[in-house]
């Protein structure tokens, strides 16, 4: 570790552990000859809500997989303090286990069955699915399945919750509900959240800090200080950040539409948003 040239602050590793849930240092990942991550630096503090933005192929999902320990990472590049849990874009529930059992599965390595079920039931109550305890996953709506998936991630009391575009397949109204739910859960559980999304308005509504990745590096970071109840797109701080982020993503910023809901912001459905092949060389 000595050769790693620690930062001038004389923070011992124990101090790191009390401040950060995750520290990523000069993280590289390549698939074959294709470099996906080219030296990512990212710290996530306890209780922080971070959004990771970027165009398709920028490496944001790869970074999330590293943080979730789903892929092997070179030693020293990804340091995690405490448990992490993931909710994926598709809920990935086991169709042959009922809802309660799906949630309890995340606790398999800890207590005995009765306790597992009890905690699964408590967590399902938090996502308002008490009446679906014994439903099969195939009987759930998309939003319900995604709530089960959230409960499954939360039940193990993670220090860091990783959300991989969890709401992109949901309809606009369900998405508003899910945003509110996520904020509520984040407040109740003392955990940090990292959400990967390509919806700028979603990120602006949810996160304290927005990180834009481009070509495998952190391009820029924005801190949002307005309280979540007051993030109207017309507000100068939000409007400025939104314009800057869009331009960092290589999209021509459009003036915010005051009629658009600040939380759902149906930006992703605009045709010029995704099909742009003029990649910003930020």
């Amino acid at each position: 570790m000595a050769f790693l040239k620690t930062s001038p602050t004389t923070a011992a590793p124990s101090a790191d552990a009390s401040t950060y849930v995750a520290r990523v240092r000069d993280h590289h990942r390549a698939f074959g000859r294709h470099q996906v991550l080219r030296g990512i630096d990212l710290d996530i503090r306890h209780g922080e809500f971070v959004a990771l933005l970027g165009r398709s192929g920028c490496g944001k999902s790869t970074l999330l997989r590293s943080l979730a320990r789903l892929d092997p990472t070179p030693p020293g590049e990804v340091e995690l303090h405490g448990r992490t849990a993931v909710a994926f874009q598709e809920p990935r529930l086991l169709p042959w286990r009922d809802v309660r059992e799906n949630v309890a599965l995340a606790l398999l390595n800890t207590p005995e069955k009765g306790v597992r079920h009890e905690r699964a039931e408590q967590t399902l109550a938090e996502v308002s699915l008490t009446e679906k305890l014994h439903a099969w996953p195939l009987q759930l709506s998309g939003g319900q399945a995604q709530r089960v998936s959230l409960a499954r991630a939360l039940v193990s009391n993670p220090r860091l919750l990783l959300l991989d575009e969890p709401f992109s397949a949901l309809d606009a109204l369900t998405r508003i509900e899910m945003h509110q739910l996520v904020i509520e859960l984040w407040r109740h559980h003392s955990m940090a959240v990292l959400i990967v999304t390509h919806d700028v308005d979603e990120a602006l509504a949810l996160a304290d800090r927005l990180v834009v990745l481009d070509e495998g590096r952190v391009a820029r970071t924005w801190e949002i200080t307005s309280p979540r109840s007051d993030r109207n797109p017309a507000k100068p701080e939000i409007a400025t950040a939104r314009a800057e982020i869009l331009s960092a993503l290589g999209v021509q910023p459009t003036p915010p539409n005051p009629n658009r809901d600040p939380i759902t912001g149906e930006l992703r459905n605009r045709p010029d948003d995704r099909s742009g092949n003029d990649r910003g060389a930020a």
Partner: peptide, 20 residues
């Protein structure tokens, strides 16, 4: 993806076999 989800929950090889 289901096996991956089970891995993200830290299920052991035997548990993944049994439940997935």
């Amino acid at each position: 993806k289901m096996i991956e989800a089970a891995r993200s929950m830290n299920l052991t090889w035997g548990q993944r076999l049994r439940h997935v």
